[in-house]
């Protein structure tokens, strides 16, 4: 626990800023979500519950704002009355945006949330003391707190649902913060396999649970550094740059209107999730 060690850790901690001269080495996990394809079916959310051992808190706790959906489907209406107009509601799947300059990381008093070399925003449950400053500073409020000790609460995983808990993912006790990890357990396995075989992870080799479950293929996930990956191509096509705080959205490029954007970009959080604006009129 030397001072050199402290300074080294500390400078490493912030090295992954997108405008920094030191780019990501091998992987930069990113996502793109095509809102034109999203039907709001919630399959992604359900898959996330199953994959990441999320507690089903029940109606009462949900109504108190203790919901635990790492991935939530938000509904937006065109009018104030929330009537189902001809075109219906619009949907937006929202999860942790894995910001490159994440507001949550800098404020955690104990450094429980950090940036990984792959550009993920990691959360160390064992280190978390539950000050909830990260959530206070998260503009997307995509972080969820364990308000109760769910593993010991009845009916969170009623039998036989406890049988489907994912052994690769820990269950979290009360008092810690958690959030979407981009299914880091899958990424770890894929990277480990690739390393054993002396290669990089192929595009499509690893899927997040939400991506896998999406019936319309609205969610793409992959390595942004690999120019051949689906995600990198989509970002390229939409001219969305990781280190910009404003994209060329709505400009016309090759006869197509660009529709890629990231949410609350003006706050300079540099999120890793690109959304493609919904153009179609109908609900389905």
């Amino acid at each position: 626990m030397s001072i050199t060690n402290l300074l080294q850790n500390w400078s490493d901690f912030r090295q992954q800023h997108p405008s920094d001269e030191r780019p990501h080495q091998e992987y930069k996990w990113a996502m793109s979500i095509d809102l034109d394809l999203c039907t709001g079916c919630n399959a992604c959310s359900v898959a996330c519950y199953a994959e990441n051992n999320l507690p089903a808190v029940g109606k009462e706790k949900f109504s108190h704002g203790h919901s635990h959906h790492w991935l939530r489907i938000e509904r937006y209406w065109h009018n104030e009355d929330r009537e189902y107009a001809d075109q219906g509601a619009q949907f937006l799947p929202m999860m942790c945006q894995q910001c490159e300059a994440a507001p949550c990381e800098t404020v955690c008093p104990v450094g429980a949330t950090n940036h990984t070399a792959d550009g993920l925003n990691s959360q160390v449950y064992n280190r978390c003391v539950g000050s909830r400053y990260c959530n206070a500073n998260c503009p997307y409020k995509a972080r969820y707190f364990n308000w109760y000790d769910y593993p010991t609460t009845a009916d969170v995983w009623p039998a036989p649902m406890e049988q489907q808990l994912n052994p690769d993912v820990t269950v979290r006790g009360k008092g810690v913060m958690e959030k979407c990890t981009f299914c880091v357990q899958r990424l770890t396995v894929a990277k480990s396999n690739a390393r054993t075989e002396g290669r990089s992870v192929h595009d499509g080799e690893v899927q997040t649970a939400c991506q896998q479950a999406c019936p319309t293929g609205a969610i793409s996930f992959g390595n942004l550094i690999d120019p051949e990956s689906r995600v990198a191509k989509q970002w390229e096509k939409q001219q969305v740059k990781l280190n910009h705080d404003k994209q060329a959205k709505d400009a016309v490029h090759d006869g197509d209107k660009l529709r890629g954007y990231r949410i609350l970009e003006n706050l300079r959080t540099y999120p890793s999730v690109m959304y493609l604006e919904q153009l179609r009129e109908g609900a389905i």
Binding site: M1, L6, N9, W10, F13, T106, V107, V110, G111, R127
Partner: peptide
């Protein structure tokens, strides 16, 4: 060798 996060105003 874990330190608190000296960037955080809470620290």
């Amino acid at each position: 060798w874990v330190w608190p996060n000296f960037q955080s105003p809470l620290v």
